[in-house]
Design a protein around this nucleic acid. Sequence first.
DNA 1: GTCTATAAAAGGATAGAC
DNA 2: GTCTATCCTTTTATAGAC
Lengths: 199, 199
Amino acid sequence: MDTRTKIILAAMELFWLKGYNSTSVADILSRTQLNSGSLYHFFPSKQDVLIAVLEFLRDGIGEMLLAPAWAGIDDPIERIFALLASYRRMIVESDCTYGCPIGSLALELHEPDPKVRELLAANFTGWANAIEACLIAAGNRLPCGLDRAALAQFVLTAMEGGVMQARTHRDVAFFDRAVSMLRAYFESLEQGVQARARA
Amino acid sequence: MDTRTKIILAAMELFWLKGYNSTSVADILSRTQLNSGSLYHFFPSKQDVLIAVLEFLRDGIGEMLLAPAWAGIDDPIERIFALLASYRRMIVESDCTYGCPIGSLALELHEPDPKVRELLAANFTGWANAIEACLIAAGNRLPCGLDRAALAQFVLTAMEGGVMQARTHRDVAFFDRAVSMLRAYFESLEQGVQARARA
DNA sequence: GTCTATAAAAGGATAGAC
DNA sequence: GTCTATCCTTTTATAGAC
């Protein structure tokens, strides 16, 4: 693996575990067994490492996140809840310390460089677009007038809020209740379509 | 105003504007026009200032947040959306840079001291409890079997997720769409009760 | 309780040899 | 492209006078 990629992977994990400000350049060097000259050869500053990490996450959402979560699942609505179930697994496996890497950075960085903010937004957009594609694939199981982009964003909202509370309370039940509320909402949408079809 | 309170108020605002790690003790001293001896006379460390801020926010939720948002509004369900509307005002007034002070700290601090984590959780609980009281006050307008604690947490989830996305995209429409999805969910719950009453 | 001065460490970043 | 050494700033916290 080339040095640049090594740095990105180490920084990605450290930013996720400790946050951006609490990760020092020395931390990244220690984890990669590199020296500061190497890092500053590829990146002008620590912030440029962050930018590379955010680009890496944005470009890897399909392979790193969606593909594993959706293996063997074809139903578009079940794919949405399978993705949420994969977050549940990460929460449980981390003893409820899991945080969404993008959400955490989005709230940690209060005055981000425009490039950083745009990449955070692009990561959210990529996630929501994947959900929106599922909602579109669900076709007439959902109301035809439904704003599918808005509902896709709402799925992201529920995930982020659920992860935030589960981590803060150190209790996955807070995530489970958010998913269960979202599931009830989906069922009411699907039942609304069926009721109108009967009428 | 006593010195201790001055420090808490300045720190509260700075933690909210810049985050905990990006606020230095020197920042707090500069804003209060105090010297480090004064701060360290009242607080053993910077983290103890954070603890005092979180206690202040927890104890002030009624006066500082709920009372202004609920002035002149008696309907319990409208109170929930009035609270969300007060967040919308803060988002717009801050040019979409508003972040929930608790949510931001909850995601910034990755390995918080137990006391800090418990206070973050207590702040979430206080907020959700206020919403739950509204849901209980709504009585039979909502399904009798509804898990009102879970729905109250879901309102918090929607607020936090909506604020996060509005800030990241610098666009209040992301918050509006989250509220509108939540509103549709409430309407489907209320209509479900009415439909069962007619049957 | 508040002041000034300063310790002690950690942080981001650079220089120049190899 | 990678190494070592180091500069300079910021940061938390303390010491001791008043």
